[in-house]
Design a protein around this nucleic acid. Structure first.
Lengths: 226, 226
DNA sequence: CGATGAATTGACCGATGTCAAGTGGCGTGG
DNA sequence: CCACGCCACTTGACATCGGTCAATTCATCG
């Protein structure tokens, strides 16, 4: 568990003794599949680092649309805004399987930041990356069509949470057509059409619990062409 | 000029003596209308605070589309990522009128952050806000139509850079139809249609150099209805 | 083996991007 | 001071992507 922290973006690069100290202040939170760690709109009190399992970060818009921001796995953090006073969680975080996380009060992280500048810069780096990622997706939405966006999304998932297997890359998350629709901002019908098309052409292979990416280059070509 | 810094999001809340020290390390950069402070893709070396004038933050996508992220005015900062090593500027910053800015090497800001935690938290707060803003616009793009998005964009501009005048709010930036199109992600034709419609109905009033918002509530109603 | 929820597929339609032609105003240069 | 040309804007016609609805099939779990 210490080793997960040592690898995490938030706490990596710390002296072992400091890492120890950090870990000693952690609390543990276990959540079963489908349940939430934190809820959008509630005051942001704590920052979390996932130790085990996968979770998804979901926003719902004022008019009721769901937006699936991203999936996170072991070593990844959420709730960073809790270091700042007066913020609310911008999204809910929901376990897609049995999950375990460590968490710290936001104030405590603030103290860490004051004391250990390495943590301050780690935090900044994480936020900067998130910013870039959101902007990239914003641009995609502006300029690319549903087909390209879906291809990109699958490639991104493969890279983030995929495992290499014999004939390709396995993404073993229970991704419904609706989930994919919420990721790229469309409806499940469009997803369905594209997926069965790609499956016929042997680019991918799907069942209810997973996706296998068979011909990566072909998808990349699709994602690229504007 | 010190007072502009004292008001800026990046350096506000500092002891006067520290603010002094910060200012002593600043360099000055003057840029004429239409020219750039920094260029997208170049290594991010310095952070800037605008002292005078207005500038726009623009990204161009891999396939050549322009995206106008936002306008900034006196007291606002850009190039924050330069505190982190190995980043590039994610966007270009272009003056829309004669502009003057102070700037600091990224490494120097990093030292400030280590030494004065107030600056660290200011930086974090700025990044968190930017994130939220980008996500809000992402959602808008997903769920709202061109008409609502344009209404929102104009309201936002009015709030950020508008001046109250007799019959409404004046936005005195040289905003072409194309600029507006790049803000909300559409083409100049759609903008043109909507704008002339609204002008006929007396909601707004435009010429080449400015926009006057006459009936704010009416625009708000348009922006809200989904 | 039935029931329930997910996925598929087809038909339809509307918002919006694209193209083309025309208008108007402003500045420049004669 | 006038005329020309350029550029931003307007307006209409058209094409198309993709969102919506309805009907059907599929698979999974009890």
């Amino acid at each position: 568990m210490l080793s997960v922290l040592a690898q995490s973006k938030l706490f990596k690069g710390l002296d072992p003794s400091i890492l120890q100290a950090v870990q000693q202040h952690a609390h543990r939170h276990q959540v079963e599949s489908g349940h939430q760690f934190v809820q959008q709109g509630k005051p942001a009190l704590a920052v979390y680092v996932l130790i085990h399992g996968y979770a998804k970060i979901v926003q719902v818009t004022p008019d009721g649309h769901q937006v699936l921001m991203r999936y996170i796995g072991p070593g990844q953090e959420f709730g960073l805004v809790s270091v700042l006073e007066g913020f609310e969680y911008p999204a809910s975080v929901q376990a897609v399987e049995e999950c375990e996380a460590l968490f710290w009060q936001g104030e405590l992280l603030a103290q860490f930041i004051e004391r250990y500048s390495r943590i301050a810069f780690n935090t900044l780096r994480i936020m900067a990356h998130q910013n870039q990622e959101t902007q990239r997706r914003y641009q995609e939405l502006l300029t690319e069509h549903v087909e390209q966006r879906l291809a990109q999304a699958i490639l991104r998932l493969a890279q983030q949470v995929g495992h290499s297997i014999a004939n390709g890359t396995l993404i073993d998350l229970p991704l419904s057509r609706e989930d994919l629709a919420e990721i790229i901002g469309t409806d499940l019908y469009s997803i369905s059409r594209l997926m069965s098309h790609w499956e016929r052409d042997g680019l991918i292979q799907t069942d209810r619990k997973s996706i296998v990416l068979l011909r990566k280059e072909a998808l990349e070509r699709l994602a690229a062409q504007s």
